[in-house]
Amino acid sequence: MTLTLAPRLETNRLILRSPVKADADAVIAFLMDEVRSDGFGGFDNRPDAWRWFALNVGHWHWHGYGYFIIEDKASGKPAGIAGIWNPEGWPEPEVGWVVFDGFEGKGIAYEAALRVRQWAYEDLGFTTLTSNIVPGNTRSIRLAERMGATYERTYDNPNMGEDMLYRHPGPEALA
């Protein structure tokens, strides 16, 4: 049973879908991995990581968008999360992404983030999006720049501390 009303989006290799209860362990494992979740905001205990999983479900119900589960079509396994994130305290909606252990270096985050951005512009009517990146997260900076996003400013993120805001090109620039 899906936990949100998220649409099912596809790319050549990926399915972006609503979280289901069975996804909790993969997301929680990522969030509790201090090295892998660095730059995303991990947790040192399962209850807090579980609360973040539930927070994402609530985010979908509050906003009508949130993080999709990225499912690898070839294996059927959760490969990461990507979506639009805008909790209380965020400067504006952002395109966010992470991939889980074993799925890095395959272009999955890029492919998922492009599809999420397309959905946000075409289906949700967004006219601008950002990506908020912790300084030193060079992989995410490269991915944002590959998507055409440019550094705009640094700000104080209430959850992450210092964050760099990258602005994505609007839908008119991508047409």
Results as ranks from 00 to 15, higher is better:
L124I: 15
S75W: 10
G39M: 01
F68T: 03
D48N: 14
V95F: 09
A49W: 13
S37G: 00
S131V: 06
E71Q: 14
V134I: 15
S131A: 11
E71S: 05
F30M: 00
D101Q: 14
S75A: 09
F53P: 02
G39Y: 04
A49Q: 11
L129C: 10
W97D: 05
D38F: 13
L55P: 03
Y65D: 08
N56D: 11
P93Q: 08
K106Y: 13
E94W: 04
M32S: 01
A120E: 02
A26N: 13
I70F: 11
V134P: 02
D101I: 10
G66Q: 05
W90Y: 15
W62V: 13
K106Q: 15
F53K: 03
Q118S: 12
F30E: 00
G41W: 05
G102L: 12
W119F: 15
F53N: 05
Y121E: 05
Y67R: 10
A54I: 13
A82I: 00
P47E: 13
A79N: 11
T130L: 07
W90I: 03
D101M: 07
A109I: 00
H59G: 03
P135C: 07
V98R: 15
F43G: 00
W85E: 01
S131P: 11
A82E: 08
W85D: 01
G89E: 12
H59E: 08
I108F: 05
L31T: 01
L114E: 12
M32G: 02
N86S: 10
F68W: 14
A109T: 03
I133T: 08
A54D: 15
A120K: 05
I133K: 03
W50S: 09
G42H: 00
V99Q: 08
F103T: 05
